[in-house]
Design a protein around this nucleic acid. Structure first.
Lengths: 184, 184
DNA sequence: GGCATCATGTAAATCGTTACATGATTGC
DNA sequence: GCAATCATGTAACGATTTACATGATGCC
């Protein structure tokens, strides 16, 4: 994966989980193995080195193992919390929106870590950049698709449909964020 | 990226471009830099080593530079063509459908490389596996979403919406493939 | 002649993958 | 006591990224 300015997406995903509560390495592996967060691998060769990097950077701290257990509980530090919040607040750039996996991970964590007033801005930025991206793709399609075989055209339309769905999602999300809290 | 049983997705993408016509390394970099295929990086440190691997495997062949030019034209070999077709024909598995980038790349190339009769099968497999994936995600959502903050719920719904769009796309693609060739 | 662009590469660093190793607990 | 699973790691390897290096061509 891409270095992402300072830390990998996996590292920020870990910080996000630590933001909720302390975890052991094994617990984190289970999360990645058993929930739809399996976008990240549960391989020890990925997780343990990532945890070591976070410890080395001072972003997480190891607690002494409780009650003779062999389990190492790790928890977020102050600087780690800061780095996590900075990541959540990063501006949404053109290059981020496609693919937008890391962006959606950030959005998912925002609800518990940022004041509600900051969140609609993310959706606005996301919409703007996604709209620009879609427009560029449509332009490319209009100019070139005529010469493509059918499967090439359909594959491109797959991409266009996804971008349109993402824009529609952003509209719905903006609406949902405006609602006063309760609502079935 | 993942080794993918024998070759990387980048390597197959290169084979697909060679299947259309011979290219130089620089041309390929331009394709990745300037078209929506920019999912792949145009960095020389990715492309040239990948080309070297393909040459070493005997899947592409270097032609002598034409007319004193410094440019090296590379073209597909017989075994390379076979390996490419084998890749196109791979069964669609559960693990392939999310993310499905490599799958869509395969589909895009199929129109020029496989007999038309083989293509609907791909769409059927894709639909089946995608439907299973969507059902699993919906089950997880129904069981867990109640405890999540709003942004977490919305982020998950983003994923659900994409899966639904992909299924709808597959239905449309199946229809389009049934049409007799001409149709505006 | 000089400068942008064409064109092909290499080097160092980093990250993730697969596979292996090892020991402690828990349930039967 | 034994097997499954809890729990933490290491080692070898492969691929990609960024940055650097180098020379040729075409244009003004």
């Amino acid at each position: 994966m891409t270095p992402m300015l300072g830390a990998t997406t996996l590292e920020y995903a870990l910080l996000g989980l630590f933001h909720q509560k302390p975890h052991s390495g094994y617990e984190l592996r289970r999360v990645f193995a058993e929930t739809p967060l399996k976008y990240f691998s549960d391989s020890p060769g990925a997780i343990y080195p990532a945890l070591r990097r976070l410890v080395a950077r001072g972003w997480i701290i190891a607690s002494a193992p409780e009650g003779g257990r062999r389990r190492r509980e790790l928890r977020l530090s102050g600087p780690g919390r800061e780095a996590f919040i900075d990541w959540l607040r990063r501006p949404v750039t053109r290059d981020d929106v496609d693919p937008d996996t890391a962006l959606l991970l950030r959005f998912a964590f925002m609800g518990q870590a940022l004041p509600a007033a900051e969140i609609p801005k993310f959706i606005e930025d996301y919409s703007r950049e996604m709209r620009a991206q879609l427009k560029a793709l449509q332009g490319y399609y209009d100019e070139n698709a005529a010469t493509w075989p059918l499967t090439g055209r359909l594959a491109f339309e797959h991409g266009l449909a996804l971008h349109e769905t993402k824009l529609a999602w952003a509209r719905g999300a903006a609406r949902a964020l405006k609602q006063p809290k309760a609502q079935p």
